[in-house]
Computed example of a mutant assay.
Amino acid sequence: MADPHERNGENERKPDSTDDANLSARLKSLDARISQASAQRAEAEPRPRSKTDSSAIGQAFRYSAEFVSGVIAGGIVGWLVDRLFGISPWGLIICLILGFCAGMLNLLRASGTIKPARYDDKK
């Protein structure tokens, strides 16, 4: 049977204390580089904005409510305009379009894409 310490007929070098010291120094160097790289990565990543309702499902419900409320309000106003003035589909059509635009504007304001309605530059 072959000797497990021999490889391809050659004798392997026995590890000594200098090999252990070199390995220990390399491991410490690697650990320092890994911690430095993880610190740089943490600094480079953008930090999320803090909001009062930070859960994703809460934001989704808020955004959908902002949009749907504008469309429903436009539909109700359009239906009332049609009943009062007798211009059957036109009041509803125009007010639904205006409600859609108002809902999109509310959605953009709620998400922070555009500035709020009462934005004051004099801070």
Score class of each variant (00 low, 15 high):
A56Y: 07
A117K: 15
S88M: 13
A117R: 15
T18Y: 05
I57S: 08
Q59H: 04
N8C: 00
S17H: 09
R83Q: 15
V77F: 02
G70I: 00
L107M: 09
L84D: 06
F85G: 01
G78Q: 01
R41F: 10
P4I: 06
P4F: 03
S24A: 15
T18I: 10
P4L: 07
D31Q: 11
G74D: 02
M1S: 11
S111T: 13
R49N: 14
K123G: 08
A21T: 14
M1L: 08
Y63C: 05
I57Y: 06
A21F: 13
I76S: 03
T113V: 12
K14T: 14
P116Q: 14
D31T: 07
L108H: 06
T113K: 07
L105K: 12
R62G: 08
A21Q: 15
R83S: 15
S111A: 14
L27A: 06
W90N: 07
M1F: 05
D120I: 08
A25V: 10
Y63W: 09
Y119F: 07
Q59W: 02
Q36V: 09
E6Y: 03
E43Y: 10
S29Y: 04
S17K: 12
N11P: 07
E66M: 10
P46V: 06
R118I: 06
A2S: 11
D120R: 08
D120G: 03
A42G: 04
I93Q: 03
K115I: 13
M104P: 01
G75K: 04
G70C: 01
D20F: 11
E66C: 11
C95G: 04
E12P: 00
T52K: 03
A25C: 06
M1A: 09
D82L: 01
F100L: 09
S64H: 10
C95V: 05
A65I: 08
D19G: 07
D31I: 04
L27R: 10
A25R: 13
L108S: 07
I34K: 09
M1Q: 05
D31A: 10
L30K: 14
S64I: 12
N106L: 14
I76W: 02
R83T: 15
P89H: 07
K122W: 12
I114W: 02
P4K: 06
K14E: 13
G74R: 00
A73K: 02
L30E: 14
I87L: 05
E43T: 12
K115N: 14
N11Q: 13
R41V: 12
P46I: 04
G86M: 08
G75L: 07
I94R: 03
I72M: 13
E66P: 02
S17V: 11
G103F: 00
G70V: 01
S55N: 04
R118V: 10
D16T: 11
